[in-house]
């Protein structure tokens, strides 16, 4: 064998062995258990904290409001659609306040007149004309909007 190869071949073999050793030690623990990824990352994603509690949780304390809501057109609505995430609120006995939106603009997100919305799906009003200067909840009970106050 030429002297060059006598020197180069072992060098390459050492290089490849070194690479394999590095590969062995640097590959994360659960990598490749189920597929070409870190299997434990699935559990990591699963363990992320939730923020929205879900209606069942609300119902544990506010069954009266949930019942009111369920009586007619807002029956499909979840509490947290308007009140925002409520898990911290629920888990701390109501210490953490939840959102109570009162502005016309908030109701308008769903109910403002828009020809892109199907009238079969949602009641729409022209907020530029309808009782301007008043808040929606001055007249409508948001949990039972079909009943007018006063």
């Amino acid at each position: 064998m030429p002297p060059q190869l006598k020197r180069l071949l072992p060098a390459f073999i050492i290089f490849i062995l070194l690479f394999l050793v590095l590969k062995y030690y640097l590959t994360p623990e659960t990598f490749g258990e189920k597929g070409h990824y870190r299997y434990s990352s699935i559990a990591e994603v699963q363990n992320i904290d939730m923020k929205y509690a879900g209606m069942d949780k609300c119902n544990e304390c506010h069954d009266d409001k949930v019942e009111e809501l369920g009586m007619d057109v807002h029956a499909d609505l979840s509490c947290e659609a308007c009140h925002g995430p409520g898990l911290t609120h629920a888990e701390n006995d109501g210490d953490y306040e939840i959102l109570i939106p009162t502005e016309r603009e908030f109701c308008a997100l769903c109910h403002s007149k828009n020809i892109s919305r199907s009238t079969r799906i949602i009641t729409q009003i022209n907020i530029l004309e309808h009782n301007t200067g008043k808040k929606c909840i001055d007249c409508h009970n948001p949990h039972m909007p079909w009943e007018l106050k006063e």
């Binding site: 923020k51 209606m55 659609a81």
Partner: peptide, 10 residues
């Protein structure tokens, strides 16, 4: 639980 987007969809 269901997803956040489904939870709030009116």
């Amino acid at each position: 639980k269901t997803t956040a987007c489904i939870e709030v969809c009116p």
